[in-house]
Design a protein around this nucleic acid. Structure first.
Length: 107
DNA sequence: CTAATGACATTTG
DNA sequence: ACAAATGCCATTA
């Protein structure tokens, strides 16, 4: 299993209504290649399978999207995530950390 | 193998 | 707070 497949598998595990960051994704894979994570998501062949729109930058901004960041915003809003000025609202609460159980009550 | 690239991150001006 | 510069790691040419 190469690095990209790991990234995609992990991305598929992001639950509905939550988001994660490239850095946390790489950290969960025990690697530091956050940029390579974004690179993998960019050319992922599992476009509809992998919820790439739930992956954002570490500071809460959206980052990029293959089919346009506007589309990314729409997808996230469909999942109940509010976007303000290209930034995720309550990002700290929405962000998921793999390996740690998150509190669902505040969402 | 070497060089260039990117949906990034961190530091600096 | 914003923009530029630098560092980073896997992938690709």
């Amino acid at each position: 299993m190469n690095f990209n497949e790991k990234v995609w598998e992990l991305t598929k595990k992001i639950p509905f209504g939550r988001v994660s960051t490239y850095k946390e994704l790489a950290n969960a894979l025990n690697a530091k290649a956050y940029q390579a994570v974004g690179n993998a998501l960019n050319k992922n062949p599992y476009a509809p399978v992998v919820p790439c729109h739930r992956v954002v930058k570490s500071d809460g901004t959206l980052g990029g999207f293959a089919t346009g960041c506007e589309n990314k915003i729409k997808l996230l809003e469909q999942e109940g995530i509010m976007i303000k000025e290209n930034r995720i609202v309550d990002f700290e609460k929405k962000m998921i950390r793999f390996g740690t159980v998150q509190n669902v009550s505040d969402f």
